[in-house]
Write a protein that binds this DNA or RNA. Structure first.
Lengths: 126, 126
DNA sequence: ACGCTTCTTCGATGTTTGTCGAACATCGAA
DNA sequence: TTCGATGTTCGACAAACATCGAAGAAGCGT
């Protein structure tokens, strides 16, 4: 059996900062599941794939991570048998200043109550 | 014969400000043709459908306007023969402060040279 | 009344997308 | 090495989407 030493170890192609396309980012953010992932990531530095508060099959989740990664929104690194995902907040902010923050703020403003926030959960009154 | 007086005159259903959905807006903005429309509109108060610098069939254009209108990004009104489209910049800014401006700025930052800008066309040097 | 301009609606078409289950790969632990 | 936990890749599939051409509707001009 060909021991390719590791297949998941392949560089995990992330786009360079200058390669990040705005339309790709907007598209990546326009899906509910992916937006949840991004919001969750905004509150934590890093997180394993399987630990996100989304309700889809593992393979579907994997697909969404691929979209987010290839659009430059998130970054993934291998750690043992897990894959840790992080927001590329700084990179995005360099490429598109203020964009991520504005989008995130816009989302939170919309879904204020009765929405289990992944990060802080202070009951905000509108 | 029922003179409905006009069919295109129907209110042209636009979502109310509070009805505007962020994910719908992001999706609307994630298409190249629609982004061009929005950019064009950002430079002018109003414009007729057929006068946008996009290269698609009229029916396709109509479809894109529908997406933009139903997501709350643009507003359309009848004027004689034509349908005038305008950006709902103020509404969007009330709903999602800063979003439109940030996205637009992000786009311009990306496509600096060799992109025929719909608005001003001074040869800017990067 | 007739035609011209503008724009929409209606299929049709081919592509992309979100979703799943099954199978596979990797790593750590027993 | 055998297991279990984690994730990915591979079809498959239905729904959504961008696109077009043809046909239709409204209004302006002649």
């Amino acid at each position: 059996m060909p021991r390719s030493t590791s297949r998941r170890r392949l560089p995990l192609a992330h786009p360079a900062i200058e390669e990040i396309d705005l339309l790709d980012v907007l598209h990546a953010l326009s899906d509910p599941t992916r937006m949840t992932i991004v919001r969750t990531l905004a509150a934590e530095p890093e997180r394993a794939c399987g630990t996100f508060p989304v309700d889809v099959a593992p393979s579907t989740l994997s697909h969404h991570f691929k979209v987010l990664r290839e659009s430059g929104v998130v970054q993934q690194r291998e750690e043992a048998n897990r894959r840790l995902t992080a927001l590329r907040a700084a990179d995005l902010d360099e490429r598109f200043p203020g964009l991520l923050g504005t989008v995130l703020a816009a989302y939170e403003r919309t879904e204020e109550p009765e929405d289990e926030e992944p990060g802080s959960e202070e009951p905000e009154n509108e």
